[in-house]
């Protein structure tokens, strides 16, 4: 932390009790959840997490307004229409929950397939290495066999 005097400030760390420390950690986690995320285009889990955040439709429409008369108008409209929007929101929230379940299922399946694919890649790599060693061994033995046939032929001559 720098201030306009140019040097580093030496902030006094306050003495914090356990309840305050718990609250501060709660604040840290809460603000972390709102942080921007660098999303990768093929990250299924991240896409599902983003969907989860918008999958619930909130019918508690804000009614605050800087002008009191408009606030009353908003409250009145909210009271008149809340039964209708609750009916719609219940169905939309159910739909959203099912979409998320589908998403979680597909993500789990994708992760399983990726894990199996990674395992196969390791096994394939090991098999390729074994094949290379075998090929090298066969070549070495073939070379030795040719040399010993050549020596026998020359010693007979």
């Amino acid at each position: 932390m720098t201030n306009s005097n140019g040097g580093s400030a030496a902030p006094k760390v306050p003495d914090l009790g356990p309840a305050t420390l718990v609250y501060i950690e709660k604040v840290r986690q809460a603000t972390r959840r709102l942080k921007a995320r660098e999303s990768k285009p093929d990250n299924v889990r991240e896409a599902i997490d983003a969907l989860r955040e918008v999958a619930t439709f909130d019918v508690e429409v804000p009614t605050a307004s800087q002008r009191r008369e408009w606030e009353f108008v908003k409250i009145a409209i909210k009271k008149l229409t809340s039964w209708y929007f609750r009916f719609l929101a219940a169905q939309l929230n159910s739909f959203g929950a099912h979409v998320l379940t589908l998403g979680d299922t597909l993500a789990a399946k994708t992760e399983g397939l990726e894990s199996a694919s990674d395992e196969l890649a390791v096994r394939l790599g090991a098999a390729e290495e074994r094949l290379r060693r075998l090929e090298s061994l066969v070549e070495t033995r073939a070379t030795r066999a040719k040399r010993s046939v050549g020596k026998e032929a020359s010693s007979e001559d």
Binding site: M1, T2, N3, S4, G6, A9, P11, K12, V13, P14, I24, V27, R28, T31
Partner: peptide, 21 residues
């Protein structure tokens, strides 16, 4: 431009302490 207090870390306690100062 060198005025104000700059924080390198946005930890809420760090910022709160800077504001208190």
């Amino acid at each position: 431009g060198g005025t104000g207090v700059l924080v390198e870390d946005k930890d809420p306690l760090t910022v709160a302490m800077a504001v208190d100062e």
